[in-house]
Nucleic acid binder design. Structure first.
Lengths: 225, 225
DNA sequence: TACCTAGGTGAGCAAATAATGAGGATCAAC
DNA sequence: GTTGATCCTCATTATTTGCTCACCTAGGTA
């Protein structure tokens, strides 16, 4: 079961959070000073942190930055003022989510759950690109050692798709990704490159069918059938 | 774009909210009586509700409770007195957030944004309902790991129904939700898609019967028989 | 039961989208 | 400039999907 670290100086609020997290099946630990967080995390395991902005000892923004130097754990910032949120996002201190007081227990639990699920997903998803090997520096692509002779655009296209196997990329997104300038090309252009890419991959591995079209949406790379 | 339902009896305040939400790029609809909310939501789609506490017709707490019986949409309660908030949280009527008057338009927009972000997170990240798993990025639906190969419309339909299991969606509402433009199609069209959807689900899990029709009302997703 | 309305179904047409092939535009190297 | 490779576009064909119609079945009701 996941463990949540609550960093909050107001005892009642901390208690409330703890109670609801417990009910939702989470473990928790409570710290009421900012300057004790780093030390705690160095010696204890925690999966997510609820971090108040105003803290004695060390302020929330600073705590967040320091934690980010050694951990990618989800951090949810808790602030008293809603207007602060935009400013905080601007600071880019690396928090994953923001909640403002007063909040309902429902909200806190929902956010904790959502953020934990995200990291779990990230971990379980091992991208499958069996055999394909792209070298961006040399613009060289190989399949099981064999060279696939691609042009620049074809290489970029394959690189984009293969970066997130399974994900559907719309033509718009593909264009934005390949043409960093705001150039506009026809949708059919993408089709054309896809066609050539398929042909060249087929030349190396005829049995393979990795570039799938998704009707009405775009294209997707996928190796397993 | 997301749509906000404003439930507020003071016209000027409602107007102010609407203006700022519009500027922030949200659609909105305004209702000034509590007893019209349920009816509106049964027939129209909305992503978030700003709900005043003191309302003619039906009081905010009661509206909130009733909406919660069929919808998990984010609800932000608006109250005149800050002291009330603690009491309201205690009631556990299921609101997600609380704002007290007088508020700055900036604050309202910030909270709306924050609450919508949460549900977006929830949605893109594979909501799981008893074995069903929908991934919007991949346009892919699975049941216990097995792929259900759906077209765009079928996917949207299943996504809509599965988002709130048990809730009955009328054909009008389904159409509004799927066709964001004000296109009008025959009722039979929905039936047709439902039929295909059922067929495809049955191909993967023949014993399952999850899409129920509700005579005179619409369709409902439900896994337990 | 008889009747009326709502939902289910299959076929077929229309619309949207994708694949393809040919040819012109562009660009870089020489 | 010429040349060859690459990139883009357009027109055509093929495919997929979406929508409707007509007819059928089932649920509700007097």
């Amino acid at each position: 079961m996941s463990k949540v670290l609550i960093v909050e100086d107001e005892p009642k609020l901390a208690e409330l959070m703890a109670a609801y997290l417990e009910q939702a099946g989470y473990e928790h630990h409570h710290i009421d000073r900012g300057d004790q967080v780093i030390d705690y995390l160095k010696n204890n395991q925690a999966d997510l942190m609820l971090l108040d902005l105003m803290l004695p000892g060390l302020d929330g923004v600073e705590v967040c930055k320091q934690v980010r130097q050694f951990s990618g754990m989800p951090i949810i910032m808790v602030t008293a003022k809603a207007e602060e949120i935009d400013r905080l996002i601007g600071l880019e201190m690396g928090a994953d989510d923001y909640v403002c007081k007063p909040f309902s227990p429902r909200e806190i639990v929902a956010r904790v759950k959502a953020n934990l699920r995200r990291v779990e997903l990230d971990q379980t998803e091992a991208p499958k690109t069996d055999g394909f090997d792209l070298d961006a520096d040399r613009l060289r692509a190989t399949y099981k050692g064999e060279l696939i002779d691609l042009t620049t655009v074809e290489f970029q296209l394959l690189q984009l798709l293969i970066k997130e196997p399974g994900r559907v990329f719309g033509r718009d997104m593909i264009m934005k990704s390949i043409y960093t300038d705001s150039r506009v090309v026809s949708d059919r252009t993408i089709d054309s490159h896809i066609k050539k890419l398929r042909k060249k991959i087929a030349a190396v591995a005829p049995e393979l069918n990795v570039i799938h079209s998704v009707y009405g949406a775009g294209y997707r790379f996928e190796n397993n059938d």
